[in-house]
């Protein structure tokens, strides 16, 4: 089994750090970015297996990043898990349209995030 690569995007360095440790401890390879723009550049080059991104970020926010990914032929199928600290959940329609696999609200549990990543990667694998 190949090692799965996860791109973690958040402008909060501590969040990126803690998610990276959790994932590395569980056998994942972790790439990090601090905003949507940077994440898109890394994703274009590295083609990660899954992206975990914060929603509200400077320069380019999470939703814009997903829109950009979905309109890119090479990146449109990368599953995305969104983390959000907004007071309201992301609209179900937007979630469907942008094919966002899961939305987790902050504060979140790293354990739960890991479970979600595994679920998404596993279901993607069985679909193929």
């Amino acid at each position: 089994m190949t090692i799965k690569r996860v791109l973690v995007v958040d402008d909060e360095i501590h969040i990126v750090h803690v998610v990276a440790i959790k994932l590395r401890n569980n056998g994942y390879e972790v790439l990090t970015a601090e905003n949507g723009e940077q994440a898109y550049e890394i994703a274009s080059v590295e083609k990660p297996d899954i992206i975990v991104t914060d929603c509200q970020m400077p320069v380019m926010d999470g939703l814009e990043l997903v829109k950009k990914l979905r309109s890119d032929e090479e990146l449109k199928n990368i599953p995305v898990i969104m983390l959000t600290a907004r007071s309201f959940d992301i609209d179900e329609d937007i979630k469907q349209n942008l094919n966002i696999s899961e939305c987790l609200s902050k504060p979140f549990s790293p354990k739960e995030l890991l479970r979600n990543i595994e679920d998404v990667l596993f279901s993607t694998a069985t679909n193929i």
Partner: peptide
Amino acid sequence: KTPLASILAYSEM
């Protein structure tokens, strides 16, 4: 929620 998220995530870890 942002600092709270860090506090909870790190303490869980």
